[in-house]
Simulated assay, not measured.
Amino acid sequence: MDNTFKGQVALVTGGTKGIGKAIADTLSSKGAIVVVTARTAPKENTERQHFIAADLSQPESAEAIAKEILEKYGRIDIIVNNAGANLGPGGGFSTLSDEHWYNDWALNFMSVVRINKALVPTMIAQQYGVIINISTGAAKQPIWEMTMSYSSAKAALNIYSKALASELGPKGIRVNVVSPGVVKTPLMLEFIENIAKTSNSTIDDAFQGIMDKVGVPLGRMAAPQEIAELVTFLASPEAKYITGSNYAVDGGASPTV
């Protein structure tokens, strides 16, 4: 058994499916005690992981999660802020109400700020911790028809992460960002299906339309495990001199280095 993270406590928000589940399972396989959050409990058995039901768009959730983790385990070593979703409708600026903007920012930005604020003091007391914020390639390359409010929230997350890395580095805490491109998750498949319905096209055509807009040289979606492997590396001792960085895992979609 790989005991890279033996004795360490890790939190993975949105950790019951897709990218979050792959990250949580990989950290578990390497010896970590893993806490996962989601709005509803997973259907499969989660004996290997401690589940906390939480809606991270609600301000009170972060304190409740932190309280349960610290009362049960007394420490927190790794935070993976993975929970997020593109909640706004497509169609550009004119289709987005104030509520759409608030919803995207509450889940994709403020939830991360609150989780970190609740748990970072414990990391500071330990003089050790790793924070990995999951962003998106769309934060740098937004698709106006699909991701305007979501992209803006994630762009703010990128800047916040850099500032946090600068503040916390002297205290022994590393902060990095992982920015996936198009990943084959249940949420992405649902997103493609919705595009197909609203555009009166097939799922294959809707998928190809996204790939054409994003432009993926490798020509396919990533598997969640491919994101999890990088996150796990960044959380490990092998990455102990890496902080304040943003890693694209997008099949070459980013137009610049």
Rank of each mutant, 00 (worst) to 15 (best):
E47Q: 15
E47F: 04
E47A: 15
R48K: 14
R48P: 00
R48F: 04
H50F: 14
F51Y: 15
F51L: 09
F51A: 12
I52E: 05
I52S: 09
I52K: 07
I52Y: 02
A53R: 08
A53L: 06
A54T: 07
A54Q: 06
A54K: 05
A54S: 13
D55I: 05
D55Y: 00
D55N: 14
D55W: 09
L56K: 09
L56G: 05
L56W: 06
S57E: 12
S57K: 14
Q58Y: 01
Q58N: 12
Q58R: 13
P59H: 11
E60F: 02
E60W: 03
S61A: 15
S61F: 06
A62Q: 08
A62H: 05
E63H: 13
E63V: 11
E63T: 14
A64H: 08
A64D: 11
I65K: 05
I65N: 02
A66Y: 08
A66I: 11
A66H: 09
K67T: 14
K67F: 06
K67P: 00
I69G: 06
I69L: 10
I69P: 07
I69W: 07
L70I: 15
L70W: 08
L70Y: 11
L70S: 10
E71G: 11
E71W: 02
E71A: 14
K72C: 12
K72R: 15
K72P: 02
Y73W: 12
Y73T: 07
Y73K: 03
Y73C: 07
Y73F: 14
R75W: 03
R75E: 11
R75D: 04
R75F: 04
I76C: 06
V80A: 04
V80D: 00
V80P: 01
N81A: 13
N82E: 01
A83G: 00
A83I: 02
A83F: 03
